[in-house]
Design a protein around this nucleic acid. Structure first.
Lengths: 131, 131
DNA sequence: TGAAGAATGTTATGTTATAACATATCATTT
DNA sequence: AAATGATATGTTATAACATAACATTCTTCA
C-alpha cells in the first residue's frame, strides 16, 4: 500500500498496536506494547499517524484509535460505549455536516471537530434489560 | 438564588473564578486564583459544579467553563476559536438533536455528549482577511 | 564518501488528575 | 452542652498524560 511506504519503523509499530487493539488505547499502553524506551517515541509516531489520517485521538478518553484514512476527520463522530468500550464511528453523517453548515453561517471557520458521544451501545443496553 | 444556597465555600470560590474568567480555565490556574492548598479541592468543587450544571469541561482544552444551568449539557456544542479563545455555545441546536436521534435509532443510549468544534471565529477570520 | 536532513534515543520535566487517609465543620439528637 | 454522624476540607503522595531540549544514529543523494 502506498500509505505504508512512508511510515517509519516506529510509526509502523504504533499503527500495528492500534490495529491489534481495535479500540482506544492510551499512549502509555502503546509504550508498553511497543517496547519503546520512552513516551516521546509514541507521541511522535501518533502525531504523524494522525496527520496522515490513519489515527485519531479521542479527547474525552485520552486515548487513540485507528481510523480508516478515507474517513474525513472533520466529519467524523464517535459513539463511545462506556460499558464495553466499543466505538462506533459515524462518518460523513448528514447531522455533522449540518452542524458545520450552521457554524459556517455564523462565519465560524471550522478546522477540527471533536464529537464524542458517550452512552451505552445497543448490546449493552439490551443485556442490562435482561438482568 | 436557590442554586447558590447549596454551594459550599470552596464551590463558591471556584464558581466565582469561572465567572470572572469568562472563558475556559485550567484546574491549576483555578488553584492559583483561589489560593487552595491543593488541586484536589479544585477538582472536587468542579465535580459538584458540573453535576449541578453550572460548569462544563471542555475536553479538548483540558479546561473548565461556566455555563448557564438551563443549558442542557447533552444538547450543547462549543465552537472554540483557537485564535482569540472565544467560546461560542450552541445550545439546543436542531443539528445536535438530530445527531442524537440518529444514534437513538441505532439503539445507542446517549448519556453525555462532547461536541467541540475548533476553528476561527468570525472576528478572527475577518481580521485575518485584512492583514 | 561525506554533508544534510530525517528519525530515533535519552533525560528531565511539565501538566493534568486522582487515591488514600486525616482533620475540621456543622447540624441533630440526647 | 456533649455525643453522634454526615459533609466538607485539608494533606500527602502518586498516577497518568504530554512535551522540551539536546544527543546520537540512520538515510539519501550530490
Amino acid at each position: 500500500m502506498d500509505s505504508m511506504i512512508r511510515l517509519t519503523s516506529n510509526q509502523r509499530k504504533v499503527l500495528e498496536v492500534l490495529e491489534q487493539t481495535g479500540k482506544p488505547i492510551g499512549a502509555y499502553a502503546i509504550l508498553e506494547k511497543t517496547g519503546f524506551r520512552g513516551a516521546v517515541q509514541v507521541y511522535r509516531a501518533l502525531e504523524k499517524l494522525i496527520d496522515l489520517g490513519l489515527a485519531q485521538k479521542l479527547e474525552s478518553l485520552h486515548a487513540y484509535i485507528r481510523v480508516s484514512p478515507k474517513d474525513e476527520t472533520e466529519l467524523t463522530a464517535f459513539a463511545i460505549c462506556d460499558h464495553c468500550g466499543h466505538i462506533h464511528q459515524l462518518t460523513e453523517a448528514r447531522e455533522i455536516r449540518q452542524l458545520h453548515e450552521c457554524l459556517a453561517q455564523m462565519d465560524f471557520a471550522v478546522c477540527r471537530s471533536v464529537i464524542e458521544i458517550h452512552g451505552a451501545c445497543s448490546t449493552c443496553v439490551s443485556s442490562k434489560r435482561n438482568k
